[in-house]
């Protein structure tokens, strides 16, 4: 298993850098991920999306459908790409510390 240093701590990640120990996530982890994608400040909008993703995942064991994310946050897809350079699945989920969505999604 790969290791990665985020905000001064070592974490287990998959080969695409997604956290494997979801419960060890902290807000600093999100900031550290964002910094790696050259987003140096997390705005209220970022947090809204990240927190929603995270809480939905913890409750349902899966990331929400993009449509739901759009509906709940009120951000359209291009806004989401503005916020998260690699898009909701590749960036936002990663920053939220949930595993990479797999299985025909």
């Amino acid at each position: 298993m790969a290791q990665m240093e985020l905000a001064g701590e070592m974490y287990e990640v998959d080969e695409n850098g997604f956290m494997q120990e979801t419960d060890r996530w902290t807000e600093d982890v999100a900031r550290a991920y964002a910094a790696l994608e050259n987003v140096n400040e997390l705005t209220k909008d970022h947090w809204e999306a990240v927190n929603y993703l995270r809480s939905y995942y913890l409750e349902n064991g899966i990331c929400p459908m993009i449509r739901r994310l759009i509906k709940v946050t009120g951000f359209n897809l291009s806004r989401l790409y503005e916020l998260f350079p690699q898009g909701p699945a590749q960036s936002a989920c990663k920053w939220a510390g949930v595993p990479k969505p797999t299985g025909c999604v």
């Binding site: 064991g61 899966i62 797999t102 299985g103």
Partner: peptide, 9 residues
Amino acid sequence: SATGLRPNV
């Protein structure tokens, strides 16, 4: 489901 989707979800 291979997506992790549970029945209720």
